[in-house]
Amino acid sequence: MIIEGAAVVIEVDNVNTDVLYPGPYLNIDDPEVMKLYLFEGLDPSLRDKLGRKTILVVGENFGGGSSREHVPLAMKASGIGAVLGRSFARIFFRNCINLGLPAIVCAEAVAAAADGSEIRIDAGKGRVEVDGRSYDTPVLPPFVIDMIRGGGLVNYVRRRLAERAASEE
């Protein structure tokens, strides 16, 4: 599974989901509207840097705090194809995987990336390339890779429900 795109870098560590998507906008449930408020409490001008193929590059413990899925939903709606970070907060990481948005840990690749760097992620092989230089990442657990490959938790649950229905017949 390969994802390519241009880097948009957020340098700071411990970026929480409140600043990524502030509370007042939680009464929105349409990702196409959510994306208008992504990064609102951090730096709204970051939105202008997002293209159709963006890899968001982040620091340590990215996405801590609230479980609001509005953050990865707005990211997907904005064209972000993967998040590459030094480390992720747990609920944010889960939310990304469940939405089929790869969240990849690779500190060396993060250190090498600058805004606009060409990034290529091979999640299955555990490899990240930044401007042609290659870095190894821990391979994601097979369950997580399957989840991302299968298009996320919606499809996974669909399959599980179908299996249950078949076994009951």
């Binding site: 996320g152 938790l153 919606v154």
Partner: peptide, 20 residues
């Protein structure tokens, strides 16, 4: 444990979730 909305949808549908 706190989860996002898609996880919760899975819990509502299946009564289970994946946990590390």
């Amino acid at each position: 444990t706190g989860l996002g909305s898609t996880d919760i949808a899975g819990c509502l549908a299946l009564g289970e979730f994946w946990q590390s």
